[in-house]
């Protein structure tokens, strides 16, 4: 078994050449990765395989001797995932090493058919496990990208804006799921405490659909705000959503609802004893008339 490994060590140069040739005919993504980078990656990988510690066998993929190879492959696959390679293109990197190793085994064994068969099986198994490992790492890398994007989206999508002293608004855009609603709830309540606001306006103009779960989350947020001593006004309910809410039998009777954000803002100002009036200065009126004309 270690015969094959030592043969790989001796023929490293020719294997590398053969492998690179296979690799370049199989994967045609020159736009994503340079030839020189590919060369150095293949060479590093082959060195790691050839220089596995003594006593490490190709048969035992889980032995600690292959740890270097595995971690090298994992980081390579993760970076391929970020670069935009497909999973099969990533797996081809190790899979195209297979024919080169077969030819080494053939040279090594000569006419010994049984020995050659055993070696071939072994190499086959080893490379397959390597490629499975590659795919796992690739998917893991992808998952990390997705998780990071989700996190960024969560942070971006819950801005609490102060409309006036003591009045905050939360314009919601996009679909609400449980995780997002939790963040929305927490950031709104936090903002109420920080800004000492007695009124909070939740505007759902940008929410495409409202189902029972979303409505329940909204009601929870409104109740929590009430417990803290703030009043919530729900605005921006579109006709279709109003129909859905009634058909679903959701009770919004205890919640103040307004059709537009401006109406909600007006109500909040009224309840806090304020009023917006038009200034009677002739200069300003003239200017606005000119703009209107």
């Amino acid at each position: 078994m270690s015969d094959l490994l030592s043969a790989i060590q001796q023929n490293r140069e020719s294997i590398l050449k053969d492998w690179l040739q296979n690799l370049k005919s199989a994967v045609q993504r020159r736009d994503l990765i340079g030839e020189r980078e590919l060369d150095s990656q293949a060479s590093d990988m082959l060195t790691a395989i050839a220089e596995a510690p003594a006593g490490t066998s190709l048969k035992d993929f889980n032995s600690p001797g292959w740890q270097t190879v595995k971690s090298m492959l994992a980081s390579l696959s993760a970076s391929r995932a970020v670069q935009g390679f497909s999973p099969s293109e990533t797996a081809l990197f190790v899979l195209s090493l297979k024919p080169s190793l077969f030819s080494v085994a053939r040279k090594q064994r000569g006419g010994d058919a049984d020995g050659l068969y055993a070696d071939t099986l072994m190499v086959n198994d080893f490379i397959d496990k390597l490629s499975l490992h590659t795919t796992d790492s690739y998917i893991h890398g992808r998952d990390q990208v997705i998780a990071r994007q989700q996190e960024e989206m969560l942070e971006l999508s819950t801005p609490v804006v102060t409309l006036w002293d003591g009045i905050v608004a939360l314009p919601l855009i996009g679909t609400l799921d449980s995780a997002r609603t939790q963040v929305v709830m927490e950031s709104l309540l936090q903002a109420i405490v920080q800004t000492n606001s007695r009124f909070a306006i939740i505007d759902i103009t940008g929410v495409p659909t409202v189902d029972t779960l979303v409505a329940q989350h909204l009601l929870k947020t409104i109740t929590a705000a009430r417990l803290m001593g703030a009043e919530c006004i729900l605005s921006g309910i579109r006709p279709q959503i109003a129909q859905t809410i009634v058909h679903l039998g959701i009770n919004l009777e205890d919640v103040i609802t307004k059709s537009k954000l401006s109406d909600a803002f007006r109500l909040a100002l009224e309840r806090s004893g304020r009023k917006v009036v038009r200034m009677d200065k002739p200069g300003i009126a003239g200017a606005s008339m000119q703009r209107g004309a």
């Binding site: 109420i192 405490v193 000492n196 606001s197 929590a224 705000a225 009430r226 417990l227 803290m228 001593g229």
Partner: peptide, 28 residues
């Protein structure tokens, strides 16, 4: 009147299903 409830406490009470409808609340 109950005043100054923390956000975490409010969330907990709501999750426990206690909306405390009989209690008046205020911010501070």
């Amino acid at each position: 009147v109950v005043v100054g409830m923390q956000p975490a406490v409010a969330i907990t009470l709501v999750e426990l299903g206690m909306s405390l409808p009989g209690i008046r609340t205020a911010l501070n």
